[in-house]
Computed example of a mutant assay.
Amino acid sequence: MAVKMTGDELVEVLRDTVVALVRRDGPDLSARQLGVFLTAYLAEGPHTVRGLAASLNVSKPAITRALDRLGELDLTRRKTDPQDRRSVLVQRTAKGTSLLRDMSTIMGEAVAMPQGTATVEAANSENKARHAV
């Protein structure tokens, strides 16, 4: 059964999620990078720079910059389209899939804890434990 949340509650979940992501070890993503990442992972592909730009209604250079950063972090990779060598496809990676799974967990905890503070602390504890191994 779907949980009906108010706009304020949804914003709280977003805040908790972003704060937990920012507090994780390592670099965090800008809003644009996160938008490109989530679109590449959640929307049906295949994805191209042109397609992502159209989907997000931003310029192709903005998508290229976001993909450059996502590639540096091994969250996406680019591959020449074998059907059309002029086109470049955006591919998912194992590290990106792991980040998406972590984000889903963080958001689930934020939904379960409307006050939010416990969610951020739980994410920090989980992240520290994962990096201690």
Rank of each mutant, 00 (worst) to 15 (best):
Q33I: 02
L21N: 14
G45V: 00
A122Y: 01
V22S: 08
L14M: 14
L89G: 05
A112T: 10
G26I: 01
E121Q: 10
S55C: 08
G45Q: 01
R69A: 07
V11T: 13
R130D: 09
V13L: 06
A40K: 00
M5R: 15
K79I: 12
H47R: 04
S125C: 06
E121L: 10
D102N: 12
V133F: 03
P27R: 10
Q91I: 03
E109Q: 11
S30M: 02
G51S: 10
P61F: 02
E121T: 12
K128V: 07
P61T: 02
G51N: 08
D84I: 05
E44R: 09
V49M: 08
L67G: 10
E44D: 12
P82D: 01
G116R: 02
P46V: 07
L70E: 05
E72F: 09
V133G: 13
R101A: 05
R92Y: 06
T76Y: 01
L70P: 15
K128C: 04
N57I: 04
T119G: 10
A62V: 12
A2H: 15
G116N: 04
D8R: 13
E126L: 07
Q91Y: 07
L100F: 08
H47S: 08
G26F: 10
I63R: 01
I106K: 01
H131Q: 09
L99K: 07
T6L: 11
A53M: 09
V11Q: 11
G71V: 04
K95T: 13
A40D: 03
L34P: 10
T48K: 03
A43H: 00
I106Q: 02
E126N: 12
A118L: 12
